[in-house]
């Protein structure tokens, strides 16, 4: 069973996750601006910037994060920002909520000058996240777990990060067992997505380089 302390932890994370989303004005821009490759690139860059700001605000609310060494906080965010963004985008795109303008977002991504080689694994990832039908609690916890990955480059005190990540993994594991009693592999599937995210993060660096050249 999930203990009271774990319930509190989950509530804090979920509330912070829901409170910190890309501003609606930004989402509306998806429909307003023009659809040239350059315009799409600029708009996606602007959205990514906003998403990083929102991600940092969410992260500040993860219990214990602000007590970590300041440079370690930056290393964790720098190492995970791209992965956290892919997770959030996957959730937005698979939710198909009308006010998120998901079709417009998908069209802009597809016509932004990004190479097929990168786009295919990215949309495959979005699809694989969609298939999991994650609950909000699972999404929020998985994002927190991604951010609190101890082995990011330049993290000095990995043990301090592990001490924050472990309780999140424990709650998520229990939550998965409770919510998906018919799917004992569900928790393992979620963790598998984290491995996929790492691969995407790696591609992303290469993709940015080729994008810049184009």
């Amino acid at each position: 069973a999930i203990t009271k302390d774990q319930q509190v932890l989950m509530k804090v994370i979920v509330e912070a996750y829901n409170r910190h989303q890309i501003p609606q004005d930004m989402a509306k821009k998806l429909l307003q601006e023009q659809y040239s490759a350059e315009e799409n690139f600029l708009l996606l860059t602007e959205m990514a910037t906003s998403q990083v700001q929102v991600l940092v605000e969410f992260t500040k609310n993860i219990p214990g994060f602000l007590s970590l060494d300041h440079e370690d906080q930056i290393a964790l965010l720098k190492g995970s920002a791209v992965e956290a963004m892919f997770l959030r985008s996957a959730q937005v795109l698979s939710s198909k909520k009308p006010n998120c303008h998901t079709d417009a977002l998908e069209e802009r991504i597809r016509k932004s000058g990004m190479s097929e080689e990168f786009m295919t694994p990215m949309f495959n990832f979005y699809k694989s996240i969609g298939k999991l039908h994650m609950m909000q609690e699972e999404q929020a916890l998985l994002t927190a777990i991604t951010i609190l990955t101890p082995d990011r480059p330049y993290v000095k005190d990995q043990q301090a990060v592990e001490r924050l990540q472990e309780p999140m993994l424990d709650v998520l594991r229990k939550l998965c067992a409770l919510q998906h009693p018919q799917e004992p592999q569900y928790f393992a599937h979620l963790l598998g997505r984290l491995t996929e995210l790492r691969t995407l993060n790696h591609y992303h660096a290469e993709m940015l380089t080729s994008w810049r050249v184009n």
Partner: peptide, 21 residues
Amino acid sequence: PASNLGLEDIIRKALMGNLEE
């Protein structure tokens, strides 16, 4: 963010500031 340097700048600023205010 178009570069890693840009990303770090955004993170540092966001860590110091407060979007909620």
